[in-house]
Structures are given as structure tokens and as C-alpha cells.
């Protein structure tokens, strides 16, 4: 059936508008990162970059971008791994094990993820100061876990709930303990959910700025968002370097998302228990 022309063109306008609105800032900083210092500051702005890679060289060498990146990999990576290790069993239990107060726990988790960060900023700083977590990576991973676990558990619990119960029964009769049922049968089948939770947790920890700024004051420990924000120029704001660093900071994220996305899609198409 042919769609009416008006309806069709409205759809297209919608798509084009949303693409433009979401991509213009990225487009702008990619262009900026490829300009020379003078071109960056030219008025009126030039639309076409001159392909100058000085900003990248400077960001990597003068501003120790690789150091920040390594810090971010450590913090975001360990946040993701620990969050999943905790969230998978928690979500499985909340989805399947019969226990009292289950809905209370799930509701509590959900409401926790709604608190504005600033509410816990003070207490987190105090606690970390007492246990010596300031200016350490683990000191940042802890509040990240607090903030990402509720969402991860919710996503995973939803996935676990949808898996057929017969598979669990089969695993139990086949000789699995509860823990083995989860790790050998249910978790592999919840892979799409695990990937989703992993991506969201990783993105959050990779981009988080507020707690990173609060907890990490030592430049040696700082993560990418903080590091980039604190780029120092001698006389001017180093816009070119900032843009180049942002591009480099985004790349791993895009890679991770693309990598996991394949996992999500193959996971979703694998399900089928019964034909």
C-alpha cells in the first residue's frame, strides 16, 4: 500500500530534524578538531576544516590524554564488571526466587535511581575521606556502583523474568544447584539483557563528570571528562585540543557500543525455545 505523500514527507522531515539536532554539536567539534589554531578562532567561522592534526598531537602529547584515557578505562571497566557481577545474581534472585519483600526491594532500587546526584555528593565525599578513598580509582568506582546498580538490576530482572521456567526445571533435574542454574543456563540466555546493562553502565561511568571532579583532584588520577575540562592553555582557551580530545574520548565508547550491539542483536534472535 502506498502511503499518502504528506504523511510520508512528514516522517522524513521528522527523521532529518532529529538527526540534525542530535548530531550538529558532534559535527561541529569534529570539524573544530581538524582545524589549525587560527582557523578555530577565525571570524566568521570557516565551515570546512583544513585537515590540520596539530590539535590531536597537542592533546595526546602536551595534555597527557592517554593518561586520562587509561584512568577512564580502569574506572569505567571495573565499574561495569563489578556492577554486572553483583547485578546478575541480585536480578536473578529478584526475578525468580520466592522471597518476602521482593517488590519492596525492587521499588526501593527504582526510587534510589531517581535521587539527584547532588543529594549524595556530600555523604559520599565524607565517607570516602574517612576510608581513604579520595583521589583513588576505587573511591570513584564505589559511588558509580551505587548509581548504576539499580538500573542494571532492573534491566536484568526483566530479562530473567521472561525466560521460560521449564529451562530452569530442566537444569535443576539435570543436576544444577541454584547457582549453577543461574550461571550455566539462565545468564547465557539473558545475554542481551547483560549486554544492555553493560553498555549503559559503561557509558555512564565513562561520561560521568560531577563525582569524578569531586573525588579526583590529582591530575594523575583524573578521568577523561574531568581531564579534558581542565585543559589549560597559556593565553587562550585551547578549543582545538578540547575538540580533538573529545573526539578521542568518544571513539572507545562508540566502539564498545557497536561491539555490544552485535551481541544484543544475535542474542535477541537466538532465543526460541519452541518452534
Amino acid at each position: 500500500m502506498k502511503k499518502p505523500f504528506l504523511e510520508c514527507s512528514l516522517l522524513h522531515v521528522g527523521i532529518i530534524l532529529s538527526v540534525i539536532i542530535s548530531l550538529v554539536p558532534f559535527f561541529w567539534f569534529i570539524i573544530t578538531s581538524l582545524k589549525s589554531q587560527t582557523a578555530v578562532e577565525a571570524i566568521p567561522p570557516t565551515w570546512w576544516p583544513n585537515g590540520n592534526l596539530d590539535a590531536y598531537r597537542s592533546a595526546l602529547l602536551d595534555h597527557q590524554l592517554l593518561n586520562y584515557m587509561m584512568n577512564s578505562v580502569i574506572v569505567a571497566g571495573s565499574t561495569t564488571i563489578i556492577a554486572l557481577l553483583l547485578a546478575i545474581p541480585a536480578a536473578y534472585a529478584l526475578a525468580r526466587v520466592r522471597m518476602k519483600g521482593k517488590s519492596l526491594i525492587l521499588g526501593g532500587l527504582l526510587s534510589m535511581s531517581m535521587f539527584p546526584q547532588i543529594v549524595i555528593a556530600g555523604p559520599v565525599w565524607e565517607i570516602l575521606k574517612h576510608i581513604g578513598g579520595l583521589n583513588t580509582h576505587w573511591g570513584l568506582v564505589l559511588p558509580y556502583l551505587t548509581l548504576t546498580l539499580p538500573l542494571a538490576i532492573w534491566i536484568l530482572a526483566t530479562f530473567f523474568k521472561e525466560l521460560p521456567r521449564e529451562l530452569e526445571d530442566a537444569a535443576r533435574v539435570d543436576g544444577c544447584t541454584l547457582w549453577q542454574t543461574m550461571s550455566k543456563v539462565m545468564a547465557p540466555l539473558a545475554a542481551p539483557g547483560i549486554f544492555t546493562a553493560a553498555i549503559l553502565t559503561f557509558i555512564y561511568a565513562w561520561n560521568e563528570f560531577f563525582f569524578a571532579l569531586l573525588i579526583l583532584t590529582d591530575p594523575e588520577q583524573q578521568t577523561l571528562p574531568v581531564g579534558i575540562a581542565l585543559f589549560q592553555g597559556e593565553f587562550t582557551m585551547p578549543w582545538g585540543e578540547l575538540a580533538a580530545a573529545s573526539v578521542l574520548a568518544t571513539l572507545p565508547l562508540v566502539l564498545v557500543v557497536l561491539l555490544f550491539q552485535r551481541g544484543i542483536i544475535s542474542g535477541l534472535s537466538a532465543g526460541a525455545i519452541k518452534g
Binding site: 521460560p164 526445571d169 530442566a170 535443576r172 540466555l189 537466538a270 525455545i273
Partner: peptide
């Protein structure tokens, strides 16, 4: 005795083969 220690095998209506 837990199901896994009862030494029984069960065939289910939906087959319950492990899809992965």
C-alpha cells in the same frame, strides 16, 4: 533430597532444550 540428587530425568512439554 534436592531435585539434582534424586537421579531422575525429565522430559518436558516444551522440550526445554538449552538454546545456547
Amino acid at each position: 533430597v534436592a531435585p539434582r540428587d534424586r537421579d531422575m530425568a525429565m522430559v518436558f512439554q516444551q522440550y526445554a532444550l538449552y538454546p545456547h
